[in-house]
């Protein structure tokens, strides 16, 4: 009898104090996730726009991120319950995309483009200037760093599609450039103060390249 009992593996989950709850990863039921009504309604409205409700996964995750600052596990479970998909499915989607955060991401987002064209015009210095202004470690900032006060999420970014205003940055989803190192400090101050950021550098206000200074094909950058 004795030699028949095989040496059993220590249940690693128990080991790690993670005794699995059988239903933890299944599609959660709405009444178990207490999803805020407005969030539920927004996600439902999004789902209604598509022939297949699953198409709303990115919009739903955007909604979660807008509400909680990042795609929190609870937020993901709430969205999953509304969409009738597993939380794992949504986390998998969220983690694929650069703009969806699966960890805390501050109140303000500053993305500094460090891709070819911006790099050619001083992006690395700009990123360092922002890192200094926000108090982040410049090396960390290349891949994303939170300022010590947790307010600003600073990250080097691949081409943001604004090489014409290189070097540039996206600040709370709006584009600004061309920026000098000095602009970084100003921008961060304005951000934290809650005022308008670098109005004169905003892309929105910038005329077509060919129309700058009135004359088409004239005027230097």
């Amino acid at each position: 009898m004795e030699e028949l009992v095989p040496e059993l593996p220590v249940d690693p989950a128990v080991d790690k104090g993670r005794v699995p709850d059988r239903s933890s990863a299944e599609i959660p039921e709405l009444h178990d996730v207490d999803c805020p009504d407005d969030l539920r309604e927004e996600i439902e409205e999004r789902m209604s726009r598509y022939p297949d409700r699953k198409s709303a996964s990115i919009p739903a995750l955007w909604a979660v991120q807008r509400r909680y600052g990042w795609c929190t596990p609870d937020g993901i479970r709430q969205a999953a319950a509304v969409m009738r998909v597993t939380p794992a499915y949504l986390e998998s989607v969220a983690s694929f995309y650069d703009l969806l955060h699966t960890s805390p991401a501050g109140e303000h987002r500053v993305h500094v483009c460090t891709n070819i064209s911006c790099w050619m015009r001083g992006a690395d210095d700009l990123l360092e200037a922002f890192a200094e202004a926000a108090g982040c470690d410049p090396h960390e900032a290349r891949h994303g760093a939170l300022s010590p006060d947790g307010k600003v999420f600073l990250s080097g970014f691949e081409c943001l599609g604004a090489c014409d205003i290189a070097p540039m940055a996206s600040i709370d989803e709006r584009y600004f450039g061309p920026l000098e190192a000095a602009d970084a400090a100003t921008a961060i101050e304005q951000l934290v103060a809650g005022g308008e950021v670098l109005p004169e550098k905003s892309l929105e206000r910038r005329p077509l390249a060919g129309d700058r200074n009135g004359a088409r094909g004239g005027g230097d950058a």
């Binding site: 989950a13 993670r18 699995p20 933890s24 990863a25 596990p73 993901i76 597993t86 939380p87 794992a88 986390e91 998998s92 983690s95 694929f96 995309y97």
Partner: peptide, 16 residues
């Protein structure tokens, strides 16, 4: 989870 060569196989919130 994640993308490119950072991709790995996993579950929601590291649950079993």
């Amino acid at each position: 989870l994640e993308r490119g060569d950072r991709t790995y196989v996993g579950t929601f919130d590291e649950r079993p």
